[in-house]
Write a protein that binds this DNA or RNA. Structure first.
Length: 821
RNA sequence: GCCCGAGUGGCGGAAUCGGCAGACGCACAGGACUUAAAAUCCUGCGGUGGCAACACCGUAUCGGUUCAAGUCCGAUCUCGGGCACCA
């Protein structure tokens, strides 16, 4: 054996082996990095971590939670005989790096390089096995060539389009933010209040995929919560679109409603300020007014209202829920009541949902009710209810021939009538909006398009990809909202691929999400220069297990699903859903100080636990096992400096037990039973991802067999081999060492996961509880082969109630007897 | 406001199907070893009463179903998360 594993016990003065994590981990670390496993003929298993965004501050123990989890799964699957693909890469384009670079005056490319180097060191440090030969980085031109290629394919398919639109604009970051990146009107990066700005943007028609993104969720083995969040985000609703004729204007307003049953209560029509019928406000002057639907005398007031609401920031528009509006001076006809109802404009009506117009039913909608009261408009109740405002379903009143019908019946019947009259039809709607895909920043993939005066927008030729990002010194964002690339003449000026005349490059870059929306497809074939991935590489896909944080529940996971469906449609891949199973690990929290609430670890909070220190004191195995032991893997847990001691003590105990018994040869039925029962339990718990109970299971088992070893005078090699093998995915360093100590010459990861014999897990006797009227009175051992009658008889005897009358006798096999007197 | 989750000792948590609540670990207390400390080992550790055997209470609160409820049903409270004028 290795010399450095011998230590003098200071107490006894004897030379003996004690657990020395520093020496053991040093010895085995290299071995894990260079591990080669035979893959031939094995079924594939693709275990994927959400690849990290390499920040300058490096990894803390919180980040390790997911990585330890996926490493355990990968090692376990390897032992089960799978050909495991467990790759790692880096998602490095985007704002955090660019902002850091600006602050530190280091080029983003160098920031990225350094951060990646540090991340790789740390990832290797936990003893995680990764297929480093498949590594990729989104900022590498060999990679983003294909990010651009996918964009061009989408452009070709008509999914990418340009749009001048009011966008969320963060005045501090000087960047356009997608709806997903703005919460409550606040920028998710810098927390400043966002405003609206009209800008030309590239959009992706993700809404073409709304229905498939929704139905595709059904068969996925994902946490319920994530599926729910995605389907809420897509937000499908069932309703109707109905046309209202504008009196004297020969024009119609189409509205969307989910409650056609309340149409008799529709007492006014509302348009959003951006509604197409009125939105070309800049042209407005009195001479052209006949073109517009607004009456002449109302023009000035309407114009002022619209301008005011366009100026409002997102937060103002949402925070002041006071309903404001302006009357257009015009009227529509309610098609079923034939009553004249006024047309108003209000900014609580959203322009980009439904038709941008609604029929207001103030008796049965909270918002319409408030608006009607503010403006003194008519309120007509059409659903029977005692409340003045009732938003539920019920029986119809004041609705002519539909009176007395339920909402459900009336919806059906009214829809039929509207369809007959050709003024309405069933309609579904989605909350999902198209994806704002361009960014006016430097550190991203250039959008591979060219603007030509003759030919319009022309895609870069495939063979000219990638359009590389020029390495420049000045990449600060501009106040105008233009990309910093716009000022780089050597980048902007180019030739039109069609007509060869001089033209200008698109200067917007792609959002941070672009590279991460498809990276999982690239890993199996990350060096392929000819195609995105080869047919052979497809065999590794889709991803069987995707491990990452819940924060990506909607955005990343939805975008990745969208890309996958698109690439399926154009025949690049042969599956529609990228991630068969998803696991969201919880965060590791820490109290910044004793009286505060536990918080997410972050450098700014100053509550980071540095893994390097923990490793030095307790070792990698202890840290790995403690991270799993802390609590259920999917729940947030709080780091506790003293609890980790228990895990360290355990590994010491285990080490000692194996060393002391490795040459003994004691066999016993009890040991055999414990061993097989243990294999069964550990395997079940792993399959359920209940890793905290796996660890407690190891502790319990070790306690039990230690006691047995004392009783019997030792253990045997088979039992110890099995135990070490079972713990190897969790504590790979000490397991490798003990495997060798036990006399095995092969690498422990070439072994097979232990099997248990179900016959040997059956007990002959078992302790059951005896209850009278549901209360435990006594515990006895019974033979498992005894019949119910025998056991009940025995129970009554034990309880001293043989002669009493019983109302009921319940026996639950191997658990309990309950006698009701 | 709407939609999801979750409430178990001093703490983290355990408890397949409704079947012995508190596994495992931390902290704490007592003991052994030691000149002493650390480490290690042993014992105890939900509450109340009792010398004890034991009895009663106990899984956020109230009620229900059941021979039996942490687990199922109804209501309430608290905490966490998601969405938020989506008609």
């Amino acid at each position: 054996m290795v010399e450095y594993m011998q230590f003098t016990n200071e107490m006894s003065g004897k030379m003996e082996k004690i657990y020395n994590h520093i020496a053991i981990e040093k010895k085995w670390k290299q071995n894990f990095e260079n591990i080669k496993i035979n893959k031939d003929g094995k079924p594939k298993y693709y275990c994927l971590d959400m690849f990290p965004y390499p920040s300058a501050s490096g990894l803390h123990v919180g980040h390790w939670r997911g990585y330890v989890f996926s490493d355990v799964i990968s090692r376990y699957k390897m032992l089960l005989g799978y050909n495991v693909l467990h790759p790692m890469g880096f998602d490095a384009f985007g704002l955090p790096t660019e902002n850091f670079a600006i602050k530190q005056k280091i080029h983003p490319e160098d920031v990225t390089k350094n951060a990646i180097k540090n991340y790789k060191r740390q990832l290797k440090d936990i003893g995680a096995i990764y297929n480093w030969e498949n590594e990729l980085s989104t900022t590498n031109p060999d990679y983003y060539k294909w990010t651009q290629w996918i964009f061009l394919k989408m452009f070709e398919a008509g999914l990418a389009y340009e749009k001048e639109m009011p966008l969320n604009w963060c005045p501090s970051c000087k960047i356009v933010k997608s709806n997903e990146e703005v919460k409550d009107g606040i920028c998710d990066r810098c927390n400043s209040i966002t405003t609206k700005k009209m800008l030309r943007q590239w959009m992706l028609k993700i809404t073409n995929y709304s229905e498939r993104l929704l139905t595709g969720l059904e068969d996925l083995n994902w946490p319920y919560k994530v599926k729910k969040m995605q389907s809420d985000w897509i937000g499908k609703s069932y309703g109707a679109s109905i046309q209202f004729e504008i009196l004297d204007k020969n024009k119609k307003i189409e509205v969307y409603t989910t409650r056609p049953d309340t149409i008799f209560g529709a007492t006014f029509i509302l348009l959003s300020p951006e509604h197409p019928l009125i939105s070309d406000i800049s042209d407005w002057d009195n001479s052209k007014v006949s073109k517009h639907i607004v009456s002449l005398e109302r023009l000035q007031e309407v114009k002022e209202y619209i301008e005011k609401s366009m100026r409002k920031s997102t937060i103002d528009r949402m925070s002041s829920k006071d309903k404001t509006g302006v009357f257009t001076g015009l009227y529509c006809l309610n098609p079923l009541t034939n009553k004249k109802i006024p047309v108003w404009i209000s900014d609580y009506v959203l322009s980009d949902y439904g038709t941008g117009a609604i029929m207001a039913v103030p008796a049965h909608d909270e918002r319409d009710n408030e608006f009607a009261k503010n403006m003194g408009l008519e309120i007509i109740k059409v659903i029977e209810s005692e409340d003045e405002l009732y938003t539920g379903y019920g029986n119809l009143i004041n609705s002519n021939e539909f009176n007395g019908q339920t909402s459900k019946e009336a919806t059906e019947n009214i829809l039929n009538l509207l369809e007959q009259k050709k003024i309405g039809r069933k309609q579904t709607n989605y909350k999902l909006r198209d994806w704002v895909f361009s960014r006016q920043r430097y550190w991203g993939e250039p959008i591979p398009l060219i603007h030509c005066e003759n030919c319009g927008i022309v895609p870069v030729r495939i063979e000219d990809l990638p359009v590389t990002l020029p390495k420049i010194d000045s990449y600060l964002p501009t106040d105008t909202g233009e990309s910093p690339l716009a000022s780089i003449e050597s980048f902007v000026n180019c030739k039109c691929p069609k007509c060869e005349k001089s033209a200008k490059r698109e200067t917007n870059t792609m959002p941070q999400w672009a590279g991460s929306s498809w990276y999982f497809l690239r890993y199996p074939d990350s060096k392929n220069e000819k195609e995105l991935l080869s047919k052979e590489a497809l065999e590794n896909l889709p991803v069987d297990m995707y491990v990452g944080g819940i924060e990506h529940a909607v955005l990343h996971l939805l975008y990745a699903r969208f890309y996958t469906k698109f690439l399926y449609d154009i025949g690049v891949i042969n599956f529609e859903e990228p991630f068969t199973e998803l696991f969201n690990q919880g965060m590791v929290l820490k109290r910044p100080s004793e009286n505060e609430k536990p918080q997410k670890m972050s450098k700014s909070q100053g509550n980071i636990v540095n893994p390097d220190e923990v490793i030095e004191k307790y070792g990698r195995d202890t840290l790995r096992m403690y991270i799993l032991f802390m609590g259920p893997a999917e729940i947030d847990v709080e780091w506790d400096d003293s609890s980790i001691e228990g895990v360290f003590r355990y590994i010491n105990k285990l080490y000692k037990l194996v060393i002391e018994n490795k040459d003994k040869n004691i066999h016993h039925n009890d040991l055999e039973f414990l061993q097989h029962k243990f294999i069964e339990e550990i395997t079940n718990r792993i399959e359920n991802f209940s890793f905290n109970t796996v660890i407690s299971g190891f502790m319990e088992y070790t306690n039990k067999i230690s006691a047995k070893a004392k009783e019997l005078g030792g253990l045997n090699k088979d039992l110890l081999n099995t135990m070490v093998l079972l713990i190897s995915p969790f504590a790979p360093f000490v397991a490798s060492e003990l495997w060798q100590e036990l006399g095995n010459t092969n690498n422990i990861f070439e072994e097979n996961w232990p099997k248990f014999d179900i016959e040997k897990t059956r007990e002959n006797t078992v302790e059951i509880a005896l209850q009278i009227n549901g209360k435990v009175k006594k515990k006895i051992n019974i033979s498992t082969s005894d019949s119910k009658d025998i056991i009940i008889k025995l129970a009554k005897k034990e309880l001293g109630i043989e002669n009493e009358n019983t109302k009921k006798e319940v026996y639950v096999p191997n658990r309990i007897v309950n006698i009701v007197l």
